[in-house]
Amino acid sequence: MRAYERLQAARDAERPTARAYIERLFSERTELHGDRKYADDPAVIGGIGLLGEIPVTFIGIERGRNLEERIQCRFGCPMPEGYRKALRLMKQAEKFSRPVICFVDTSGAFCGEDAEERGQGQAIADNLMQMMALKTPIITIVIGEGGSGGALGLSVANRVYMLENAVFSVISPEGCASILWEDAKLAADAAECLHITAEDMTEFGVAEDMIPEDFAHFSRMCESLKERLVLDLKGYSRTPGEKLAEERYQRFRKLGRWAE
């Protein structure tokens, strides 16, 4: 499939949203709300649950499953309070030595007057810095669209997985085409040039692995994802928090390409 077709697949309204994965993967869930500063952002859901027998903190960007939900969570575009809520839950996870599992699916952080007033940039920046130093494992799964800084705000992880048709991009191909070539209709070309696919991410070292999609057998797909996550967390269970943070830092420190 070409990059643009994958992008279309990633944005497909029928595709399972974060909530679907959370419900399948974790048992005995308690959903937690609010950033303790301003509000609760319905675009970022999170809480505590069990992955097999391991207590974990789960956080996901939720696009909504029907029109009403989608409007409520702004089609999965988080507000600053969404990022602050995520950070609050992550710090809580660190305190109680719980691993963090994030689900990323967003076209980007919300663009709006109120988002700017409340410091959208500052909220994401804070997540990047604090997540980097978090002394507990973080695993991020990009389940659909990984849209720019808004997706990165939950992706500073020890491991990043991409679903087969998930994408991760610095800018939406539409935005890129309209800025560079003044024609949003060239988005398909831009998608190709930007290298946004799961294969690209593993090649650049941005993602560790790709997860095959099988939405027709969603519970089976989640079962195998669960096994993978349990295995990862068992691998991390004896690693001290400082070392986890250091490994995460080194993972990002080497990203980029240049000549000397």
Binding site: A125, L128, M129, Q130, M132, A133, S148, G149, L152, S155, V156, F168, S169, V170, I171, C176, I179, L180, C193, L194, H195, I196, D200, M201, F204, V206, Y249, F252, R253, L255, G256, R257
Partner: peptide, 26 residues
């Protein structure tokens, strides 16, 4: 902002630099 022409590698610089800011601050 991040430079489109280097795609995702530009985006990742945000996390990378933020990490070094954090270490310097610690």
């Amino acid at each position: 902002g991040a430079r489109m022409q280097e795609g995702i590698l530009s985006l990742m610089q945000m996390a990378k630099v933020s990490g070094t800011v954090g270490k310097h601050g610690e």
